[in-house]
Design a protein around this nucleic acid. Sequence first.
DNA 1: GTTCCGCATGAATCGATAG
DNA 2: ACTATCGATTCATGCGGAA
Lengths: 274, 274
Amino acid sequence: MEIFAKLYLGDCREELKKVEENSVDLIFTSPPYADSRNKTYGGIKPDKYVEWFLPISEELLRVLKSTGTFVINIKEKVVSGERHTYVIELIMEMRKQGWLWTEEFMWHKKNCYPGKWPNRFRDSWERLLQFNKQKKFHMYQEAVMIPVGDWAEDRLRKLSSTDKIRDNSSVGSGFGKNVSKWVGREKVYPTNVLHFATECSNKKHSAVFPEVLPEWFIKLFTKEGDIVLDPFMGSGTTVKVANRMLRNAIGIEIFPEYYNLAKEQLESTKLYLL
Amino acid sequence: MEIFAKLYLGDCREELKKVEENSVDLIFTSPPYADSRNKTYGGIKPDKYVEWFLPISEELLRVLKSTGTFVINIKEKVVSGERHTYVIELIMEMRKQGWLWTEEFMWHKKNCYPGKWPNRFRDSWERLLQFNKQKKFHMYQEAVMIPVGDWAEDRLRKLSSTDKIRDNSSVGSGFGKNVSKWVGREKVYPTNVLHFATECSNKKHSAVFPEVLPEWFIKLFTKEGDIVLDPFMGSGTTVKVANRMLRNAIGIEIFPEYYNLAKEQLESTKLYLL
DNA sequence: GTTCCGCATGAATCGATAG
DNA sequence: ACTATCGATTCATGCGGAA
């Protein structure tokens, strides 16, 4: 099977027009949060966030297959002591565009940012909003089943990325090495709460989310040969994981430095696939 | 110290009028979810939920002290394949009433209800929305500190003596440099994600939330002798826990059977206090 | 070849200070 | 009064070099 990765350098509001309608199986993305990544996206103000995003979600609605899924990773920031409402406003407005707000998954970040304040604790969770175009969509629940018992989460978390790469070819999907240890164990379906640590530490580039996050949703909502889109590619975590899992990938990134980084990483993934 | 428990039988829209304004330190409640508990509040339809709740939150705003906190345990249900929007609409509307949406805590239900559906997984989290009347409110963070993570045990135990002596002034403000700061520390502040199992005991009445849930918020937002209010008392979990923790309690319940159950349970708590 | 330890680094938030 | 910048505060993780 020939797997492609199409990368576009530019503003996704423009670049998305090049993507064919009803062609994408899964959109997984983490758009710049309000007031962050100022240099690349001009630092969207919280009050302007919905207005800024709606034209993009309109395009995403166009390119997604009717059976496809859109998963967006987002969290509202605190503005003058309050949680801002732009995320929940966005949900309301996207529904007016025709999106169905199917589910809200919870990403529990085990290693959240530290800090102490007189009026709040550390924020250790983010939203993963699932949107669909219709009630019936493709979902491969068996692909993300987990062994009974809570030890599984720990095992998965501690697998190094090299371990995962090495064994992917033989297993075809996901978490590789430890699969052998699951044989004979009873498996259950997971819940809508995901426990993953962020990848910080001193790598050359640290992504905003760990590879296991897009991996989980790619397994759940696509099969091999499907098309995965990330309109805010960043350093290309989603695209890279998609290709490794034998899904086609489309990535858009406005910032040349990130775009090039993504391209480099894809090269090494390609070599691995051969 | 004399601790009271005032229980009212009736519709909280009426009974709340009997509560003095600016008198309550913490409101902790889990209102009937849309379409559930049909017999008590007439089975509020999801589309009417906000409209139904706003007069109540208006009264709650009146009775709460300016330094007090309102915590509401709620989760939107699925209606025709979508998460309904009544919860996020409620947030928007309560802000118009003057409430500040300070924070959204996450209750991760470790043993959530079993089940399987073709297009979604088990729902294992609920929202705990924190509202306040002003930016400054009472919060006793030290009361809910938790043991430090396992990482510390392994690592700090073996710190060399030079590491322990090393002063931080020479290195600047780097937190990581200064590991010695963590020697002897056993407690850290929690995050905004709470991991509590639901109580599935075989009592006659199963509460909608475990006792540790109101306990955690009562510890965090009140001190002994303060007043805790639950306008949807149910079988009285919040009221009972409050009294046991030497906080005064006010509870309102519309359904006589629950009201009586709460009264019974309070009697035994009283005996315990003596 | 393990295990152990030093260390940088996070989608943070508040309060004070400065323009 | 309203915005921009800066310092202070705080944990958990994985990499890489050392034992």
